[in-house]
Amino acid sequence: MNSVKSIVERMDSDELIRLARQLNVSLTERKMKRGLLVETIQGELEEYYREGIPWKKTRLSDLAIQISGLTKKFGKTVAVRGLNLAVRPGQIVGLVGPNGAGKTTTLRILAGIIRPTEGTVQVNGFDMNVHPLKAKQRLGYIPERPTCYPNLKVREYLTFIAKIYRVPPIDATLRMKEYVDLFQLNGLLNAYIGTLSKGNLQRTLLVGIFVRPPPYILALDEPIYGLDPRGAWNLKLLLKKLRDEGSAILVSTHILEVAEGICDRFIIMNEGDVVGKGTLEELLEQTPNAHTIEEIFLELTGGIPDA
C-alpha cells in the first residue's frame, strides 16, 4: 500500500483529478490544497484496496514457458532445431547466441507471430496453437525491432493496452504513472508514437507491458539494445525485482555482459542448435578451458580464436 501512496504523491494535478474521478471522490470546492487532495485520494485508495492488492495474489503456472521439440524451417533452411526449454516463475533465462543463431525466431514462435514446423509452445500452461488468446493474455513480448501504432499518442497507446487487457482503470492509472516515471516517459506522453526514437519506442512498449498487473511472463528480444545507460540500468533492476516477485522472463541477447548480469540460466544457441545450457557454474564445468561467459560462448560457438 505504501508504494501505491508514493505513486499518488508523485502525480501532477491532472493525474490526481483523473484518479479522483475514477475513485468517485467528491470534490465540492473549486480550489484545493494539493496535499489535501493527495490525502483524500490516498484514503479512498486504502478503502479500494481494503481486501489487498488483487495482483499480489495471482500466481503463474509452475512451467510458465515450456518449449518442447521446437523446430522451425524456412524452406530448406533450418532456423531452430529440436529446442527444449523451460522457464519457471522466479527465473530469468538468457537465450544467447551469435547473429543468425535462431533466437529471434524462437521468440517470435513463442509470441505466436509465426507457427513452428514441429514441436509445441506453452505459455502459462496454454498451448499457443490451441489456445492462442489465453496464452497471449499473460505474455509480454518486446520485439528486436519495435513497431507500434504511429498515429497514437503514447498516453493513448498505454490506455488502449490497459483497456484491451481489461486492467481496471484505477489500477491502470497507478501502474502507468509508476512505470512512466521509471522509464522517464513523462515528457513524451502527448507525443505521437510515430515521432519517437527507437529507445523511446522500446520504453513505451515496456510500459505497455507493465501497465498490466504482475506476475509477468516476458519474452524480450534484445531489450537493452537501444536504451540509454540509465534506461538499461533501470530495466535490469526492474527485471531482477520482477523475478524476485515471481515473474518468468526469457531474454534473448548477444550482449554477454547483459546476460551475465541478470540471467540465472543460459541457453546458448548456434546455427539453430542448442550448444550449451545451464547455470554459469554448470557451463564452466562443461567447458574446462573457459573462465568467463565470453569464453564459454566462444568455445561453444566455434572455438576461442587465437590471439
Binding site: S13, R21, L27, E29, K31, M32
Partner: peptide, 16 residues
C-alpha cells in the same frame, strides 16, 4: 508541491 493549489474542473465540482 503539497502547498500548491489544485484547480478542480468546474464540471467536476458541479457534479460532486
Amino acid at each position: 508541491l503539497q502547498e500548491q493549489e489544485v484547480i478542480i474542473p468546474i464540471i467536476y465540482v458541479l457534479e460532486s
